[in-house]
Simulated assay, not measured.
Amino acid sequence: MGLGTWSWIVPDGLWELARPLIPEGRVRPQGGGTPNTPDETLFAAIIYVLVSGCAWRALPPCFGISKSTAHRRFLIWSRAGVWGRLHEAVLHQLDDAGLIDVSRVVLDSAHVRAKKGAHTQVRAPWTGASRVPRCTSCRTRTDCLWSSASPPPTSTTAKG
C-alpha cells in the first residue's frame, strides 16, 4: 500500500502486515446487493480517523465510503481482534530490526483490567477513648482546663 492510492495515510508495509489479519468478508446467501468496498480502502479510512482524531461523520469523501460503513467495519475488525494482533505484529517487526529497547517499560493502568468487586476502603478500627477530654462533657466543672466555666485567667497568666 505504501506505493498505492492510500500511501499518504497508511505507512509503508502496514497494509502488508494487516492484510492477513483481516477476516474474510461474509457472502450474502441470497446474492445481490452492492459489492463490498475493498478492505484496503476501508483500512485507510479507519487509519485516517484514528490518526486524525476526527469523528466518523467527518470522514472525507475522497475514500468513497460512508461513515457508517467505515465504523461498522471498524467494529467488526475490533471484535475480531485485528488491532491487537496488528500491534503485536508491528512490535515483532520492530524487535526483529533491533529498534525496540524493553529494558525500561511503563505499564499504563488504562491497559490493566479493573476487577469487579475490588476491596473497598476499610474504616480504621476504633482504638478506644480519646485522651483529649470533650469540653461539652465538663461545662459545669471549674477545675477542668477545657471547660467553658473555668475561672478567668489571673494577672500572672493574663496578657497585658
Rank of each mutant, 00 (worst) to 15 (best):
G31T: 05
I65A: 06
G117M: 13
I65Y: 02
W15E: 07
G64C: 05
V132G: 01
T140E: 11
L86W: 03
Q121I: 04
P152E: 07
P133R: 03
V51C: 15
E16Y: 06
R26G: 10
T157M: 13
A149G: 13
A97Q: 15
R141C: 10
P20G: 06
H71L: 00
G4T: 13
H119R: 13
I9K: 10
S66L: 00
A124P: 12
A55N: 14
L21D: 05
W126Q: 12
G2W: 12
V112I: 04
P11L: 11
A18V: 01
R113M: 13
C54A: 04
R104M: 01
R73C: 01
G31I: 03
D108H: 09
V106F: 08
A55E: 08
R72E: 00
R19Q: 14
S148V: 09
T69Q: 03
P152L: 10
A58I: 00
R113C: 08
P125M: 00
G160V: 09
A129I: 09
G32E: 02
H87Y: 13
D143L: 00
R139Q: 15
G64W: 04
S52I: 03
E24T: 08
P153N: 06
T140F: 06
I47V: 15
S52G: 09
P35F: 01
G33E: 08
K115F: 00
C135H: 15
Q93A: 15
G25D: 08
Y48G: 00
R141P: 08
L17S: 07
L50I: 07
G31V: 00
L59H: 07
T142G: 15
I65N: 01
P152M: 05
G2Y: 03
E24D: 11
A110P: 10
